[in-house]
Amino acid sequence: MQVHTLDKATIINELQFGNGINHAVHEGRRADFALILSMFSDDVRDNTPVEKVEAVNTTDQLLRQRFELQPPQPLRSDQSSYEISAQQANLFHTSGLPSAKLSHYLKPEVLAYLPEDTHDLPEEVYHNLSGHQRRKLSEAEPKQLLPADLYNKLVDAQRTFQISTRA
């Protein structure tokens, strides 16, 4: 039998040999048994049926839309959160705790009221910064470093000035 014929045979398990492996065991033919076992595929995926599992893309937004849930409770305050908080406080004073709880469940209040325009720093730390440091925090892009040829430009400017003053 040719070697290439054995490679293309794709022998996966003992069912493809019929009684050959059984006869090799009962008659004590170890060489035949070893040869038959060596021709089996050693890939586990050949021996066991594998089904492709479709991964379903589930995001928080899709689940909230499917179950008709409210948006999640915001973590940080903005301008609209003060109005919501005032409304819930008013409901608490006029209608009691159940009304305030219902309002909170329908439109949740933020978890933390942080100061605005402090670049995520606590208020006491931000106000303790110097004016220069606050200005650096508010700059959108950092300043460019000095150009590499600054020394040459300064020397050229000095020579040009000296020439213009002597002439």
Rank of each mutant, 00 (worst) to 15 (best):
R30D: 05
D120Y: 08
L111G: 04
G96S: 07
S95L: 14
L37A: 12
N90K: 14
L91I: 05
E83N: 05
R30G: 10
A100N: 07
S77Q: 03
N90Q: 15
N22E: 07
V50G: 00
R64K: 13
H93C: 09
K107R: 14
D60T: 05
L106D: 09
S81D: 09
P108E: 07
E54K: 14
M39Q: 08
N47E: 04
R45V: 12
E123T: 07
L63S: 13
P108Y: 08
V25L: 06
F33A: 11
R66N: 10
S77P: 01
E109R: 05
D42P: 03
V50C: 04
S81R: 00
A89F: 07
L37F: 07
S81K: 00
D120V: 05
V53M: 13
Q65D: 11
A24F: 00
T94G: 07
E51D: 12
R76E: 08
Q61D: 12
H119C: 15
I84L: 09
G96F: 01
E51Q: 13
R64V: 12
G96Q: 02
S99T: 13
P115L: 02
E54C: 06
L69I: 15
Q79D: 06
I84V: 12
K101S: 10
L111E: 13
P122E: 14
P122Y: 05
T48N: 02
A89S: 12
T58K: 11
H23P: 00
D43A: 00
R66W: 07
L102S: 14
K101G: 05
L75D: 10
K52H: 09
S38W: 01
F40S: 03
R29C: 02
Y105K: 12
N57K: 09
E54I: 12
T94Q: 15
V50L: 08
A24M: 04
D46R: 09
L106P: 00
T48S: 02
R76V: 04
A55C: 10
S103I: 02
S41A: 10
K101C: 12
A112Q: 07
L35V: 11
N57M: 08
F92S: 04
S103E: 11
Y105T: 13
L75V: 12
F33L: 15
D117F: 11
A55S: 13
E27V: 15
Q73L: 13
H93I: 11
D60H: 01
S38V: 02
N90Y: 15
N90W: 11
D32R: 04
S77W: 01
A86R: 05
E54H: 15
G28F: 01
D120W: 08
V56Y: 10
K107A: 11
I36Y: 10
S103C: 10
K52I: 04
P74H: 01
Q87S: 05
S41V: 08
N90L: 15
G28I: 03
T58N: 09
N57L: 08
